[in-house]
């Protein structure tokens, strides 16, 4: 995979989150927006985000690390991904 900057990674994840989970055009999602604790993303729907991250970044995230807390914002998701890229 090509080297990506942190912001490029965040943009990629943000774009996926909006496409996959956000139906309401009025909702604005940023890197910091709480996704699960604010109800935008149901914890049941996390599996597709996990599969997306693993495929896109060619990593394997252990199920024990794929927690609602770790997936609660684009920032925290990218921080988690970075742990496994290294």
């Amino acid at each position: 995979m090509e080297e990506m900057t942190l912001n490029e990674m965040k943009d990629l994840v943000l774009k996926y989150v909006i496409k996959e989970y956000i139906d309401d055009d009025d909702v604005t999602i940023t890197y910091e927006t709480p996704l699960i604790s604010s109800g935008y993303v149901d914890s049941f729907s996390m599996v597709s985000l996990l599969v997306f991250l693993e495929n896109k970044f060619k990593i394997k995230i252990p199920p024990s690390k794929a927690t609602p807390e770790a997936f609660d914002s684009v920032n925290s998701i990218v921080a988690l991904v970075n742990q496994y890229l290294k």
């Binding site: 139906d23 149901d42 049941f44 729907s45 599996v47 597709s48």
Partner: peptide, 8 residues
């Protein structure tokens, strides 16, 4: 079992 969702 694993779970996933689809838009309404």
């Amino acid at each position: 079992a694993q779970h996933d969702t689809f838009k309404h």
